[in-house]
Design a protein around this nucleic acid. Structure first.
Lengths: 187, 187
DNA sequence: TAAGATAACAAACACCTTGTTCGTTTTTAT
DNA sequence: ATAAAAACGAACAAGGTGTTTGTTATCTTA
């Protein structure tokens, strides 16, 4: 693959994420993005059909990666029920978030966080579903499976949002403790 | 207050909500709104500084009202701990939603639902906070108060979203049962 | 019911954003 | 070294925004 393509692609991505830290997604113009990325107008549209496309691509790259790696982890460690606290997938996810390799936290904390939160939650849904189905037969669950999955990933996402907005005063391990406290009783 | 003002205000509101059922908030233009409302351009801007203003006003009117009435209710019935199932505030809230006086459901189900969900959750936070503080001393809580408040209102909002997306197959009473099942264990 | 105030209106405006086109220049891969 | 691929600047039409201006319709209250 042409180096030039990679270069402009990442230039656009990082200019975009930088802008997202400043202002709402919908107030960001393509003009600002290409100025910040130092990229020609034509070039931008050669890579992305529109601003929405860029957003989509960014989400896919970030969340696809983070949840994908968490999914691998569930195969060895399980969601929760193995009892070994610091190995829980959720704890690992939180640690991964705090390390913040590719600035996911920035996106979840920005003015347009709802957009990324929804994407995050959808990704989590799959993760939780596969895990829940593996662990227990559907018949044993005290509540409808769909409801439970939604409750778990929804609670997690809301917790992360709360964490970030509160300036992340808790460690991932503490937070994982809170989460276990509210989720394990209903499993 | 001048009847003309009320008339155009409600005309704009209902045109706006109708449009929201069709397309995303950000793709709706002021032109479409005033066409649908049959209102002059100048008139629109006399009422609202911009599209965002209209959104804000709509949210305030709808959620302010629904949560306000729920808040009154807590003074007589409490959040949950009185034990009388069908009287819980959350159940009442769900019933109120299903009746759908002013089309709140439409907004929570529309393409731009995230916007309204956030607003809804913020309103709920106050409701839950006042209730939680009244009921129990902060010292008795097993988890940080802020975390709990966020968890409760967050879970509720996510549940409502799940309910709507699943075409509301459950009755408010069923749903309230689910909610109690996942919340009461952690109180 | 008449007078004055208030609100709605249409038309035109300057300005900005979008997405596309075209011809040219730079970079890459072979 | 050359041909393909990518980036570029400039210019474009189309459409949205928010404001201004002067006029008309409607309310309030005296």
């Amino acid at each position: 693959m042409d180096r030039r393509q990679q270069k402009t692609r990442t230039a656009i991505f990082s200019a975009f994420t930088a802008l997202l830290a400043e202002k709402s997604y919908h107030k960001i113009t393509v003009q600002e993005i290409i100025d910040a990325a130092n990229v020609g107008r034509t070039t931008f549209y050669a890579h992305f059909a529109a601003k929405d496309d860029l957003l989509q691509a960014l989400c896919q790259e970030l969340f696809g990666h983070i949840v994908g790696s968490a999914l691998d982890r569930t195969h060895t460690h399980g969601l929760y029920s193995d009892g070994s606290a610091p190995e829980s997938v959720f704890c690992h996810l939180l640690q991964h978030l705090r390390e913040n390799d590719n600035n996911i936290l920035g996106l979840l904390a920005c003015q347009s966080s709802e957009i990324f939160l929804r994407y995050f939650k959808n990704s989590l849904n799959e993760l939780v579903r596969t895990q829940l189905v593996e662990r227990r037969g559907a018949a044993q669950l005290p509540l409808p499976q769909d409801f439970l999955i939604n409750h778990i990933s929804g609670s997690f996402v809301e917790m992360v949002l709360w964490w970030i907005k509160g300036r992340m005063k808790q460690t991932p391990e503490e937070l994982d403790g809170y989460f276990r406290a509210v989720i394990e009783p209903v499993l």
